[in-house]
Amino acid sequence: MRFPPPGADSRRPLRRLTGFARWTLLVTVCLTVLPAGAAQAAPAKSPLLTTGRLAATSCPEPPLIDGGMPRTREYLTAVMKCLNKSWSAHLAQAGLRFRTPTVRLYGEPAERVCGVRWPANAAAFYCTERATLVFPLTGGWIEDRTDLYPLKVVAHEYGHHLQSLTGVRAGYEARVHSDHTHQAELGRRYELQADCLSGVFLGSVRRSLSRTEQDWEALSDVLRASGDDADHRTHGTGANRVSWFKRGYRAVSPAACDTWTAPPSHVS
């Protein structure tokens, strides 16, 4: 299937920051940039990768343009409802445990959230130990946008929740603790898998989105612009972010999202 072309708002999204500490707050994995080696052995294979295609569902987007915080709250509530419905049914069919994530919406960044200081310039993030998705209702990532980027961001952070539910996070953290040479690369594998899982979801609801080919091309442009810079190689290059998103989108299956066995060049 040809990826339907992302033109609307292609503003560069806010750079997100994350730390890996005793527990992991995942917006971005801000680890020291270390040289990439051979393809890294995967954490214990997650059952998520064998669950088959995500069923096609409907998820109409409430408009975001104008309306301020009440409108963004409405949008995020609707999208989270779609994600919970889709992924809970998918995991249940595969015999896997599902837990609905907690969602916390903020009118503006707070001093502390989930027990830690709010990451600087964070668009959105997932608190792993508390299974909590955190979204500011303001900022360039979501206010007055007409493109698909907010939907992709929410689905990406939800991907981190799926990684926690299905053992990916535990395997990733174990590898990071034991393999200090490839921490940065492992972090990118983790983040690019969430990009791919966001593509799986958007692929499953694409027919209900009333979007044009130009809208999809615009999303590709935004993702490409959100790639790593030379100093913070945490999420992958713009080209690799687009590539993994499209893999998930085209396959509509988590099986396409095995970033752990991909060559280093595919997760650079």
Rank of each mutant, 00 (worst) to 15 (best):
P4S: 07
A8S: 13
S10Q: 11
R16N: 14
W23K: 12
T28G: 10
L31Y: 03
V33D: 14
G37Y: 00
A38K: 09
A41Q: 14
K45R: 12
L54W: 04
L54Q: 10
A55M: 09
T57F: 08
T57K: 15
P63E: 10
D66C: 04
G68V: 06
G68R: 10
R73A: 13
R73I: 05
Y75S: 05
V79M: 12
M80D: 09
K85R: 14
W87N: 11
A89M: 09
L91G: 05
R97H: 11
F98C: 08
R99S: 15
R99L: 14
T102Y: 05
R104H: 13
G115P: 09
G115V: 07
F125N: 08
Y126G: 03
Y126Q: 04
C127G: 06
E129H: 10
L148N: 08
L148C: 06
P150V: 00
G159V: 07
H160S: 03
S164E: 14
T166R: 12
G167F: 03
V168C: 03
V168W: 01
G171A: 04
Y172R: 12
E173R: 15
R175K: 15
A184V: 01
E185K: 00
R188M: 08
R189A: 09
D195E: 10
L197V: 07
F201L: 09
S204A: 15
L209D: 10
E213A: 11
Q214M: 10
W216L: 12
L223N: 05
R224I: 01
A230V: 07
D231P: 03
G248M: 00
A251T: 03
A251C: 04
A251G: 05
V252M: 13
P254E: 04
A256V: 02
D258K: 01
T259A: 11
W260G: 01
T261V: 09
T261A: 12
S265R: 13
